[in-house]
């Protein structure tokens, strides 16, 4: 029963997020602030992880190829497929569930504990629209983060493959171009938009409806990471089944 009530409150929250809009000039500023906090501030960790994980994918693929019949361009091909289809959109989103999601839950949860949300409501402001809507709009830029992760993942694979002596540059680039299906990129970005919506709304819901004090803010942040990750993985499975199978 509790899960049903939670699902219900999540969808009621979504309804309120998109109703009774806040003044445009104020919401515009909030969107810029959220872009800075959620998108720009995430770039450092995304760049670091993407580059090195791309390199690891290339090295592991190369080390597992010991059959001379397997073409050498497979290193580039496997790196491209892994990075574009799963690593960049899904793996990075789960990392973002930890970084971005915890930040959203703890900031909204702290506002709940210190009555700042009550203060907004007393002033007649739709607190859900004020707090959550800018995050949803800011995360429309999330696919750019994932595009950067894709590019750097492949670049990391090329650097590790070529300079580690596992592949030649020509073979790696041939692998990148081999059997390339543009729809795979479309599929990756479709699921990125879905993950962005989950990343903006589930942690907000956890923070907004939390009760208690500082300890509960911590618990809500942990729950936020768990539920956001679970929903991203479920959404990944459903979207993949619908679009690729």
């Amino acid at each position: 029963m509790k899960y049903l009530a939670d699902i219900g409150s999540y969808f009621i929250m979504l309804g309120n997020v998109f109703s009774r809009p806040t003044k445009t000039s104020v919401i515009k500023e909030l969107i810029y602030k959220e872009i800075d906090e959620l998108v720009i501030n995430s770039l450092g960790i995304v760049i670091f992880i993407s580059f090195f994980v791309g390199g690891v994918v290339a090295i592991q693929t190369a080390l597992n190829i010991d059959n001379p019949l397997i073409p050498s361009y497979l290193v580039g091909f496997a790196t491209r497929q892994s990075v574009i289809l799963e690593f960049a959109p899904t793996f990075i989103s789960i990392i973002m569930a930890g970084k971005m999601g915890s930040f959203i839950t703890s900031s909204i949860g702290s506002m709940r504990v210190t009555e700042q949300i009550d203060a907004l409501e007393v002033m007649g402001i739709n607190s859900l629209n004020y707090l959550v809507y800018p995050k949803v709009i800011a995360l429309l830029l999330y696919p750019f983060v994932i595009a950067i992760a894709m590019f750097l993942g492949i670049l990391g694979g090329w650097v590790a493959g070529v300079y580690g002596g596992f592949s030649t540059s020509d073979a790696f680039i041939q692998g990148l171009q081999e059997d390339f299906k543009p729809f795979h990129v479309v599929y990756a970005f479709i699921k990125t938009f879905v993950f962005a919506f989950i990343l903006a709304t589930v942690p907000s819901w956890q923070g907004y409806f939390m009760k208690g004090g500082a300890l509960e803010v911590g618990k809500a942040s942990t729950n936020s990471f768990v539920w956001t990750s679970v929903l991203i993985i479920l959404a990944n499975y459903i979207i993949t089944s619908l679009l690729l199978s």
């Binding site: 702290s110 506002m111 210190t114 009555e115 007393v122 002033m123 007649g124």
Partner: peptide, 15 residues
């Protein structure tokens, strides 16, 4: 509500 002012126990200032 636009004509209401509220002073909360802890201030509830936007930090």
């Amino acid at each position: 509500r636009e004509h209401m002012g509220m002073v909360f126990q802890g201030g509830a200032l936007f930090d």
